[in-house]
């Protein structure tokens, strides 16, 4: 049962809530209690921007069971326009692609969208969150 775990992470998954170190300005996503950059424990609320570019990506041909119906799934590390990096799935791609390098280039601009990440089987909850798609 995923419900309690998913509930806890709603601010991050739905609204991209991060935190920003008051001392050095580093943005942490997910939010942290200790700044990994300067050790400060003082933060301000911060919302991630929703556009960025692909730093690297892969096509997962053998995903875990929750993602089997969507296979292959494409995942990327995206650098958002403020420099923060997140990992997310690349969605809205053609369902069958011979050569992904031809449609996804490192450096390609993307926007974050709100999507269903997976469903907990036939009867369980739907889990929502961010993905990205090529602009």
């Amino acid at each position: 049962m995923l419900t309690p775990r998913v509930y806890k992470e709603i601010p991050q998954r739905y609204r991209l809530e991060a935190n920003k170190c008051k001392k050095c300005g580093r943005v942490n996503f997910p939010p942290r209690l200790v700044c990994p950059n300067c050790g400060s424990q003082e933060f301000e609320d911060y919302r991630l921007p929703t556009t960025g570019k692909i730093l690297t990506y892969t096509v997962v041909r053998t995903p875990p069971v929750d993602f089997k119906l969507q296979k292959p799934i494409v995942l990327a590390i995206v650098e958002l326009e403020d420099g923060t990096r997140i990992m997310c799935q690349v969605t809205d791609l053609p369902p069958y692609v011979e050569n992904y390098d031809e449609i996804i280039k490192i450096g390609a601009p993307v926007e974050l969208v709100f999507r269903k990440i997976f469903s907990e089987g036939e009867a369980g909850i739907h889990v929502y969150g961010y993905k990205c798609r090529l602009i």
């Binding site: 969507q70 999507r115 269903k116 990440i117």
Partner: peptide
Amino acid sequence: PGMDEDTITISYMAAK
């Protein structure tokens, strides 16, 4: 709809 889209995600995008 994409396999990761439903009434909730569509509503969210329109509302956004």
